[in-house]
């Protein structure tokens, strides 16, 4: 077995005449935090959606943990170990924090054709759910209804829900978007703890976060990977500076 948990080759997504993902190849090693950066419209979220199966791909292969999962439907990909946080908060808004995480644990505890026993009192579900909350420092908010959480807390819960599915790999789509400075500093610390145990593919606009967290970075422009390398290599890459970083600083 290779050291890659995810190996994407020649991935394609077409929207009419537009190539949103253009012959893209990218790999993520086990335990690595691999960041994907690029200007708006570069196809970062499209890539995440293709990897989670939310949208179908028009070509290429997606090898995850040695299996070609390109034709797996979205729910099945969760069961091979891919978990995701959404760019726009996507939670069960009228459920409590704990119930959100319980549902994620439940979906990985066999089928749910159980019609009688109360699920939210089930210790087999509560324990792993609390553990997922603990990892994000949210266990003291467990009984709060999601719609009453702050934006930053909702972003953290996004990741807790993903963790509760016990994944091998996390796909994080701009987890820090709209977060306060303190909240994102906390999240960076948490992600540092998580990486190594988990492989992480991170999309983020916050360059300080990206450069302090990433083991490797891939730069995406118009659906194409123009460079992949360590943060230092990316920082000194002329093409990247021109296409992207140059405008920023």
């Amino acid at each position: 077995m290779s050291a890659d948990i995810l190996k994407v080759e020649n991935l394609i997504k077409r929207y009419g005449g537009l190539l949103a993902t253009d012959d893209l190849s990218i790999d993520v090693r086990k335990g690595e935090l691999h960041a994907v950066i690029g200007p708006n419209g570069a196809g970062k979220t499209t890539l995440i959606k293709q990897l989670t199966g939310e949208i179908t791909s028009d070509g290429g292969t997606v090898l995850f943990d040695g299996k070609d999962i390109r034709r797996y439907p979205e729910p099945k990909r969760s069961h091979v170990g891919i978990a995701r946080s959404f760019q726009i908060t996507t939670l069960f808004q009228n459920f409590t924090v704990l119930e959100n995480v319980i549902l994620a644990v439940q979906s990985h505890h066999g089928h749910s054709f159980r019609f009688w026993k109360n699920a939210n009192n089930d210790p087999d579900l509560i324990e792993p759910a609390l553990e997922a909350l603990r990892q994000m420092g949210m266990e003291n908010r467990k009984d709060v209804v999601v719609s009453e959480l702050s934006h930053g807390e909702q972003r953290q819960l996004e990741i807790s829900v993903a963790l509760a599915t016990n994944p091998k790999m996390l796909l994080l789509d701009e987890p820090m978007a709209g977060m306060s400075v303190e909240d994102s500093t906390k999240l960076i610390a948490t992600l540092k703890e998580l990486k190594g145990r988990l492989s992480i593919l991170l999309i983020e606009h916050d360059m300080d976060a990206v450069f302090s967290l990433a083991d490797r970075i891939t730069v995406l422009v118009y659906g194409r990977a123009i460079a992949t390398g360590t943060p230092e290599e990316i920082r000194s890459n002329d093409e990247v500076r021109q296409a992207y970083l140059g405008e920023e600083d």
Partner: peptide
């Protein structure tokens, strides 16, 4: 209140999230 009810209510609340956690 059952496992089944959780799935039914959760799907009403957010189907996209439901699919992404594997249901």
């Amino acid at each position: 209140g059952s496992h089944f009810g959780n799935i039914i209510r959760g799907t009403k609340s957010n189907e996209a999230r439901m699919r992404s956690i594997g249901v």
